[in-house]
Design a protein around this nucleic acid. Sequence first.
DNA 1: TTGAAAAACATAGATATCTATTTTATATAT
DNA 2: ATATATAAAATAGATATCTATGTTTTTCAA
Lengths: 166, 166
Amino acid sequence: MTGKDKPSKPEPSHKDAAPAGLPGDPRAFAVMTEISIIAHLADNLFARVLPDGLTVAQFAVLNHLLRLKKEETIGELASAHQVSQPTMSSTVRKLEDKKLVRLVPDAGDRRIKRVAVTRAGEAMRGEAVARMRPLAGELLGQIGEEDWARIHPVLTRLRILLDKAR
Amino acid sequence: MTGKDKPSKPEPSHKDAAPAGLPGDPRAFAVMTEISIIAHLADNLFARVLPDGLTVAQFAVLNHLLRLKKEETIGELASAHQVSQPTMSSTVRKLEDKKLVRLVPDAGDRRIKRVAVTRAGEAMRGEAVARMRPLAGELLGQIGEEDWARIHPVLTRLRILLDKAR
DNA sequence: TTGAAAAACATAGATATCTATTTTATATAT
DNA sequence: ATATATAAAATAGATATCTATGTTTTTCAA
């Protein structure tokens, strides 16, 4: 995931993509399509600027724990990040292999291990944030603050609707 | 992908998730996080209502070709759907195995095979659309038309920005 | 005309995700 | 107290994606 070369990368051209084109509510489908493409593009772009060996999923876990300033179980992390428990187990193990987190056993419940970010983990997250800052400023800065504010509440409502329908 | 049981499925609770929390432009990051979650939830939801054996990627190809009413090469499909050429080759082969598309050799250029949807493919897409209609109506109908219209142009602008930065 | 570069697709190997199941530990009901 | 149900995490197997590379065909320049 170093992203130096790009041999078989898909080329621009987004007249359309995923769902879309359904009868009934074309605009809603068009918007969902845009959202799908945006998520995909942002994810790829993000992956390219991350420090070597750190995936988006791994960064997200470090960032989550450091933002909340607390330790969480694998199950809690899986819920928060919308992935299955085995997937989060795998992500956490990779972070552990790199010494970016350590697993703290729970005193009262021996099934549980809480994930704690190490110093090295903090440093790695700091580097990741530093690397994405220019890209973020350049790109996201081109959308005005008022536009972000305009779309934010609608997207939150949509996310809550979809979340309830799971 | 039948989606009958759901043992290790992540549970609700979205106080937060991926990126977010970066300094500089918190709102932009919060929005990008919402977009990422929405795309993920919609994809999963969509996958669950599709006819058995049809993946989202496969449906997207059928739908794309039927909407545009034309045949396209594997390379064109890969570009349009933001995936690598080998991925699209694989998706097309699966559709071909199920007789939902057939590969039409190009008369003038023997490297090329155009992907054409079969009758069975049309029927399958029709069934997929029929199955998702109630879900779509129920969910997406809860967001007013004016809200879709409000966020659409901003999202399109954002998508174009990200696309240029690839 | 022939050799090199480019293009379209296929193949190979790696990885991240998923579902299903297993293991171990805790909670609860008889 | 003991048996059963629930819960947390690990393991196993499948799949969709990616990058890197190979093969075949076409294009173009010397």
